[in-house]
Design a protein around this nucleic acid. Sequence first.
DNA 1: GTTCTTGCAAAATATTTGCAAGACG
DNA 2: CGTCTTGCAAATATTTTGCAAGAAC
Lengths: 134, 134
Amino acid sequence: MNPAEVLQRHHLKRTSCREGILDVIMRSDKAMSENEIREKLAGNYDRTTFYRSFKTLEESRILHRIVVDHLNVRYAIDPAVNSNPLHAHFYCEACNEVKCMEMIPVAVPVLPKGYTANETEVIIKGVCHHCQDK
Amino acid sequence: MNPAEVLQRHHLKRTSCREGILDVIMRSDKAMSENEIREKLAGNYDRTTFYRSFKTLEESRILHRIVVDHLNVRYAIDPAVNSNPLHAHFYCEACNEVKCMEMIPVAVPVLPKGYTANETEVIIKGVCHHCQDK
DNA sequence: GTTCTTGCAAAATATTTGCAAGACG
DNA sequence: CGTCTTGCAAATATTTTGCAAGAAC
């Protein structure tokens, strides 16, 4: 599935900014920050436009936002878009990267009566195998 | 266990700011933001001091920081301090509150060889039972 | 042509840092 | 008394908002 298809399927207008964001994210095996995405992107868009695009894409459940902390927000394709399993995210405290751990599926927890879950996020913080050896 | 004891046990100096923060948090059944804590606190401390205190308390694994997003960061007593189980957190998208779900224990996931986990955070976003009825 | 999206400028908010004064042990 | 903590001022960074011009359908 390519960016244009994804947008159409979700009834969003095809704009070059949205297509570009999706293209970059879909090629990446890690979750990316706004800065990383902007650097990889040919077109030079305003940051405002980026944030609005992210918001739109997140609301349509195309992108998934992973918030590690104030300075570490990342975006990844929502697993459902590729019919992948809902998975945990690993944040490496040494290299600051967020990796999708598809081998660690997220069990959606059973909540007490009266609660509704819309989303479940699992973030594991630690040190990745690249940084381990240093 | 009271705030002063907790500080001593972790070899931290007893200051009124730290004691106050711990006092407020330990009485609360929900995770609290910096603003909420400051409002409940008698003494009038600088925000800088708060942030530094949070950092110290978090590094000593007394407090636990729950980051829902940019504008929703909360603090709670680390479960280990009260020998409670590591648990999931529920963020209500309607009332913006974070509740510790002690009935939902967090299973520390098995990572691939080479990875080390320091911390596992589970955040469930949805609507709580109070906001459900409205 | 109507509606949604973009860019620009400006504002809101959370958080961090340096440094001198003050408190803890 | 030496070391850690506080308050103040200022800086950093992300994110949001209003508004007019431009693009998608």
